[in-house]
Amino acid sequence: MTQLFSRFTLMALAGPTLLFNACSKDDNDNEVKPAEALKTETASNLAPAPGTTNPTTGQPGTPRHYAFYSLANKSTVAYTDSATTKWDLAVRGTTILVNGSSSGPGQGGAIVKEGLFSEVTTAPTTDYKQDTPTAKAIPTGSGNGWYNYNSTTHVVAPIAGRVLLIRTATGKYAKVEIVSYYKDAPATPVGTEPSGYYTFRYVYQPDGSTNLK
C-alpha cells in the first residue's frame, strides 16, 4: 500500500497538461433517433493540475485542488468556481466528490448501483448519499465504491458493472460509468501509467425528469 500512495502522488501528477475533450460515441445512432433521446457522452482524462514539484526529488506533489466537471455543460470547471453550483463532479486521486453538503453549495448526491449502464433507464428520486467530511457519497477504498485496487500489480481498476447515479448541483439526474483511471485509457494498464485521469461515460437529463433512457 505504500507503493500505492507513492504512485498516486507520483503518477497522478506527472502529466502537467490537462487533456480533456467531450465527444459523442453515439453520433450515428442519434441522427436517426427522435430528438428527445439522450446522448451518451464520454469525458476523457479528467485530472487535476499537479502539485508543486518537490525540489529535492524532482517529483510532483499532491494536487492542491480537485478537477471539477459540469455534466450539464459537458466541460471542466475552474477550481475558482468550486464554491458555486456550476460543477457536478470533482476528482482527485481515487476520491470523487459530488456538489452538495460538505463538498459544495449544490444539491449533489450519489448512489453507487450495480448493473449495466444501458440497463439503468430511470433515476431514483430518493436514497441519494451526500458527502461528509469523513465519508463520501461515492465511497473510497478498494471494493467499496467504484474501483478495485490490486495490491500485487498496484493497478486501480474501475469495477465493471458499477453505475454512479448522480443528483447534480442543480437537482437534475444523470448516470455515470467510470471506465478508466489512467491517462488515455490504456487497454491493459500495468500501473505505471500516469494515474488519476478519469475517463467516464454519462447520460445527463436536462429536463429534470428521472428518465435516463
Partner: peptide
C-alpha cells in the same frame, strides 16, 4: 495468475 480487469 491474477486479475487484470478489476472484477477480481
Amino acid at each position: 495468475f491474477q486479475d487484470r480487469n478489476g472484477n477480481l
